[in-house]
Design a protein around this nucleic acid. Structure first.
Lengths: 105, 105
DNA sequence: TTGATATATTGACAAACATCAATATATCAA
DNA sequence: TTGATATATTGATGTTTGTCAATATATCAA
């Protein structure tokens, strides 16, 4: 293979595969246009909390599809939802967000 | 639908679908553990430039697989590669990176 | 309790993705 | 030119993903 001819062989990956997988899941959660819009709508709402009911109309996707995308964002811990009666109010998990920001700096 | 009952109907997505798609592609590029490691290896190298030849051994993936992932990172404009003779030296596109960072803040 | 509404789950399907073996291209050295 | 090496492309395969219709669950109001 002769890789030693051009590269130092002992440089290693800076985190474990598990860490990489977990962080990759966060990026992947933002890696879809609909979820990116969902996240932005939640993050940029003046009240910092948004009820899910508008997303179907706003993003022109079916209710199950929106629900599915919100679940992915929740599982990546980018957002949290609290139920108040019939509605769920979403807000951004600022700690997860700063971890991502820290990785990128 | 009675969505007006809980949400102001005129709140709108803060960017176009095309913009969301383009930015989502950048996040998706980081949304795979192998690519996240590739990116990190390139970004954290002291010399700021890394030749591709070590990645096969380091990340335990075949050469075509590494080549494929590097292409995705390149197409997302997260990295750039310059050919010097037989080898290609990769470095991070810092401007694309700050655009992503800006989105997250 | 009955009806309406908000959200979640299931099942299905087409499209996209990660991966590798095989092959191709390009560069360098002898 | 010939052989070796670095990277890219192609083709194939199994897996994951985005989407929706149908259905389920939960909450509220009458």
């Amino acid at each position: 293979m002769a890789i030693a001819a051009c590269c130092s062989p002992e440089s290693t990956t800076p985190f474990t595969h598990d860490d990489a997988t977990r962080l990759a899941r966060v990026f992947a959660a933002l890696g879809d246009p609909i979820r990116l819009k969902l996240f932005t709508l939640i993050a940029r709402d003046p009240s910092q909390e948004v009820c899910a009911c508008s997303f179907v109309v706003e993003l022109q996707r079916s209710q199950p599809t929106i629900s599915h995308h919100l679940k992915i964002l929740r599982e990546a811990e980018l957002i949290t939802g609290t139920k108040r009666g019939t509605w769920i109010w979403y807000s951004v998990n600022t700690q997860a967000l700063s971890e991502v920001r820290e990785f990128l700096s």
